[in-house]
Design a protein around this nucleic acid. Sequence first.
DNA 1: AGTTGACCAGAATCGTCAAACTGGTCAAAG
DNA 2: CTTTGACCAGTTTGACGATTCTGGTCAACT
Lengths: 229, 229
Amino acid sequence: MGDAERESRILDAANDLITHYGYDKTTVDEIAREAGVSKGAVYLHFKGKEALFEALLLRESERVMDDMFARIEADPEGGTLFHVYGHALRAAITNPLIRALSTRDRRVLGDFARRFANMASPQDGMMFGREFIAHFQAAGLIRRDLSPETVTHLLVYMRYGFLMTESILPPEHTPPIDEIVAAMADMLSKGLAPDGQGDSETGKAIMRGYVAQLRAAIDERRGKLKKDE
Amino acid sequence: MGDAERESRILDAANDLITHYGYDKTTVDEIAREAGVSKGAVYLHFKGKEALFEALLLRESERVMDDMFARIEADPEGGTLFHVYGHALRAAITNPLIRALSTRDRRVLGDFARRFANMASPQDGMMFGREFIAHFQAAGLIRRDLSPETVTHLLVYMRYGFLMTESILPPEHTPPIDEIVAAMADMLSKGLAPDGQGDSETGKAIMRGYVAQLRAAIDERRGKLKKDE
DNA sequence: AGTTGACCAGAATCGTCAAACTGGTCAAAG
DNA sequence: CTTTGACCAGTTTGACGATTCTGGTCAACT
């Protein structure tokens, strides 16, 4: 078993246990056992429990980002902000840990919840923040008569509500995810896009730049994690 | 001091204390003192602490509803669903207790949080629920190609995010409430309204009916409260 | 008759302390 | 050189009784 594969197994185990029992109630011992290695081995790969968790968040963030990006590239109209938005939501809701992170679910994050009050995760902070929206506006993919801050707020509201669906609306009346996302994207494109919708390829180009930027941010954090070891 | 006025003072005191310290940490003794009456007097008006709180919720719900209704009637275009929606949000965010109720804020609701898992409040349950939306669709105020459930979800998402603003977005970048609500209403009207927007007066008529229905529901609950005494 | 506040039983809180557990280390085994 | 798991120090948990607090009542007072 290679080094990278073992690290990956440890992260898999941590992911399963933490999304199920929460950060606080998951012990390093359990993670090691679930991963089929000894506890010492865990400390060979990570500085400590916190660093392990952070590494896990980075990995899952990257996965969600890759997932989103793949969906965008595969979709002819994927570069429109509202398709971008839809693909981002689909990717995010699929990943339990990222969902917990985005909704600041204390049952999963435990003590870490406080840490995220200050430090926004790459996912959250950069994805639909002011700069991001301004960029899309400049490229003619969003109406320019709205301030970027306002657009950001609207998009974050919907994203938050969407990821909270299970908690706030009775599941028996919830339509399929695809139907909701489709309606959302459609509504947004009619409500926030300029006449003519803007050019999808331009949007894709922007997204490639952003994904690269996000990836760089993630790698930088990874580097810091390693250096602290 | 009349009987009704004293009851009102007790509710005022309870409102102040509970929105500030939360249900659990507010004692009947403090409520009585704040209201300038004895503890016994509180029990003359209400069966117990729970009944007092429920009465408070009913009063505040009714106030928010009245507020919303007044805004709608005063607005020439107030009958459009999206103006209705905007007025409902403005009214709701103004009232701390209703905001806490709508966001299921445990710090304020305390033990009561659980009770609302099953029993939806009139405000929440009826306001933008399936039936309500279906009604507006039938009246030609919302596109008919979307299922009422889907529309409900979209609206609830935005409402939830909007009422959570303070908790999820840094206040320094938050535009004025009016700007956000205006953008939201505009976006919704472009995205979810049929061509031609529909007739505002029709919407107002529907709203009058709904408000009457809500008021009846509130009065019924009030009656049950009194009966249990 | 209408109000009050002292009073009560049960619940929550505090303080304590021993047992169990947890993150982290490292000598020893492989 | 890599990996392990017994081990350690510090923390958390839980049981316990003492003490305070809280919702609710009711005899006494106005």
